[in-house]
Design a protein around this nucleic acid. Structure first.
Lengths: 181, 181
DNA sequence: ACAAAACTAACTAACACTTGTTAGTTTTCC
DNA sequence: GGAAAACTAACAAGTGTTAGTTAGTTTTGT
C-alpha cells in the first residue's frame, strides 16, 4: 500500500479518496476493503509504525551511551534515519496525525510526548554533566525536534546530502550553533 | 472572519466546511457568499497576508542593520512577532498553503522561496564577515526557519513565555547552540 | 422632505458531485 | 471446490456553490 502513502503525501490525507487510492493500483474502491478495514487504518498503521521505530531508536541510545553529547548525536542520527527512510510515512507522521479519530489521536499524542521527554532528559543530563548550557529544556527540545522533523520537507533521496551527513550537520549545528568561537 | 480561521486551525482547512463556518457565526452557508467569493478566499487572504507581513519584516531588517548577527536577531524577532500575533493565521500559513489551487500555490511558494533567500543572505553575510562558521547556507537556513515556524505549534498567548523572549532564546540557541564554551 | 431606486445581507431550496463504506455477486487462483 | 480478491451497485451523508427571494437600510432625484 505504499502508493497510497505517496498520494496522501502529495495531496493530503483528507484530500485523498479511497477511489484515488484504488485507481492508483488499478482497482475499484470497494476492492480495497478486502485488504484493509478502512481509510483510517492506513493513517493509524503509518503513524504508530513510525512511532515505534522512533521509540526503538531512542531506547537504543539510552542502552549504549552514557554522556549527553553522544546520546544526542545518536538520537538525532536515529531520528533522521527513520524519517528519511520513508518520506511518505514521515509526512503522515509529522502532519496528518491530526486527522486520527479522537481516541487514536490521544494515544498518538501520548507516545509523542513520551518520546519528547526522552530527548528532554538528554538535554537535562547534559546540563547536569556540566557540558550543556542552562537552557530551558522544554524550549530546547521543541526547537531541536522542529529542526529534525522539518528535514522531511526538503530531503530528497537522490539529492546531494545523505541522511548520515544531515544528522551529523544537525548535531553540529544544535551543539555549537552558527557563530564562531 | 476570525472564527473561520479558528475552526480551520482546529479541524484543518479541508475538514472545515462552509456550513461549519456559517454555523459558528449563526448563519446559513449560502449567506457567507455575500461576504467572500468562496472558501479558498479565506486561505488565500490569510496566507498572502501573513506573507506580506513577513516580507515587510525582513525588508526592515535590511534597512536598519549592517552586520549579520544583528540582522539575524531582528529577523528572528520579526518572524516570531508575526507568527505569534495570530496563531490561527499562522497555522494556515505554515501548514495549509498546500491546499491552495495550483496557480496560487505556485505564487505562494515563489514568495516563500524569496523570503527564505533573504534569510540565507544573512547567513552568507555572516560568513563573509568572518563571524559565522562556514556552514552550508541552505541547510542552515532551512533548519533555522524550521525552528521558527514550529513555535506556532507550542506557543500559548497566556503561557509563561512572551514572543520577545522566545525570539531572544531562539537567537541565542541558533547563534551559539547547546554546548558550553 | 419624500418617494423611488439601489444596495446589503440574510434566507430557503436546490444542484451536481464526492465521500467512505456495505452488500451481493462474479472472477481468479491454487 | 473453496478461499481470496476482484467486481457492480447502491446508500446515506456531506461538499462548495448558485439561484431566487425577502427584509431592512442607504442613496438618489426631484
Amino acid at each position: 500500500m505504499g502508493t497510497a502513502l505517496g498520494l496522501m503525501r502529495k495531496k493530503g490525507y483528507l484530500n485523498t479518496s479511497m477511489r484515488d487510492i484504488a485507481s492508483s493500483v488499478n482497482m475499484e474502491a470497494a476492492s480495497l476493503y478486502n485488504h484493509i478495514k478502512g481509510k483510517e487504518e492506513i493513517l493509524i498503521d503509518t503513524c504508530f509504525g513510525l512511532a515505534e521505530t522512533l521509540e526503538m531508536g531512542i531506547k537504543e541510545v539510552n542502552d549504549i551511551y552514557f554522556n549527553a553529547a553522544e546520546k544526542l548525536a545518536m538520537a538525532i542520527h536515529n531520528h533522521i534515519q527513520a524519517l528519511t527512510q520513508d518520506l511518505n510515512a514521515s509526512h503522515l507522521f509529522v502532519h496528518e496525525w491530526r486527522h486520527l479519530s479522537d481516541d487514536k489521536r490521544a494515544q498518538f499524542i501520548q507516545r509523542r510526548d513520551l518520546y519528547e521527554k526522552e530527548f528532554r532528559d538528554i538535554v537535562i543530563l547534559g546540563f547536569e554533566e556540566g557540558e550543556f548550557k542552562n537552557v530551558d529544556p522544554k524550549f530546547a527540545t521543541l526547537t531541536i525536534l522542529a529542526s529534525l522533523n522539518w528535514v522531511g520537507e526538503w530531503y530528497r533521496p537522490q539529492g546531494d546530502m545523505e541522511p548520515k551527513e544531515i544528522a551529523q550537520k544537525l548535531t553540529q549545528f544544535i551543539l555549537s550553533g552558527l557563530q564562531k568561537n
